[in-house]
Deep mutational scan, measured.
Amino acid sequence: MTVLPKDIPGDSLKVTVGTANGKPGDTVTVPVTFADVAKMKNVGTCNFYLGYDASLLEVVSVDAGPIVKNAAVNFSSSASNGTISFLFLDNTITDELITADGVFANIKFKLKSVTAKTTTPVTFKDGGAFGDGTMSKIASVTKTNGSVTIDP
């Protein structure tokens, strides 16, 4: 049996954390987006972790974005102690894959008090994996961190 590389060099799934701005007490939304989904033969499963400074940001909610089908079954998240974990699994293993680019999740943060303008990162942590529509590992994932700026 011969195994051929399935990824064209330079191609990767792009996962990007967005940015937001606000004043202390505001609730802002930071999107997590996927790009080049079709090039990577869709997404059938993924789990990953984001870190944030809990002294500056309070997670209000984490909701599935419009590219997630049947989110009540296929999407899960949790947030505590400065870490947000995400889990997606197409429970049907074929019919509810992520097949389009767009917003995977929206994180709502309540901004805490600061004395001066502060930009705090929302960054990928170690761990996690992504699988394509056949549940094979997506070897190349380009992750881009985001941030939230609090301006009193």
Rank of each mutant, 00 (worst) to 15 (best):
M1L: 10
L4Y: 14
P5Q: 05
D7I: 10
D7F: 14
L13K: 10
T16D: 07
T16Q: 10
V17Y: 07
G18A: 12
T19Q: 12
N21S: 12
G25T: 11
D26L: 13
T27S: 13
V30K: 08
P31W: 12
P31Y: 07
P31T: 12
V32A: 10
V32S: 10
F34Q: 07
A35C: 06
D36W: 14
V37I: 12
A38D: 08
A38W: 08
A38H: 11
K39C: 13
C46A: 01
Y49H: 03
Y52F: 14
D53C: 06
A54S: 11
A54Q: 12
L56V: 12
L56S: 12
L56I: 09
L57G: 10
V59Y: 10
V60F: 09
S61M: 14
A64M: 04
G65R: 12
P66D: 13
I67E: 11
K69L: 08
N70F: 06
A71G: 14
A72M: 14
A72W: 11
N81C: 15
N81Q: 15
G82P: 15
G82V: 15
T83C: 07
I84E: 14
F86R: 00
L89Y: 00
D90H: 02
D90S: 00
N91W: 03
I93K: 00
I93E: 02
D95P: 02
E96T: 01
L97F: 00
I98T: 15
I98K: 05
T99N: 06
A100L: 05
G102V: 12
A105E: 07
N106S: 04
I107Q: 00
K108A: 05
K108F: 05
K108C: 04
F109Y: 04
F109P: 00
F109E: 00
L111H: 04
S113E: 03
T115P: 06
K117E: 05
K117Q: 05
T118V: 04
P121H: 08
V122W: 01
D126P: 15
G131A: 02
D132A: 05
D132G: 03
T134L: 04
T134P: 01
T134A: 05
S136L: 04
K137W: 00
K137Q: 01
I138K: 01
A139H: 15
A139P: 15
A139C: 04
S140I: 15
V141I: 05
T144L: 07
G146N: 06
S147G: 06
T149L: 15
T149Q: 14
D151P: 15
P152F: 15
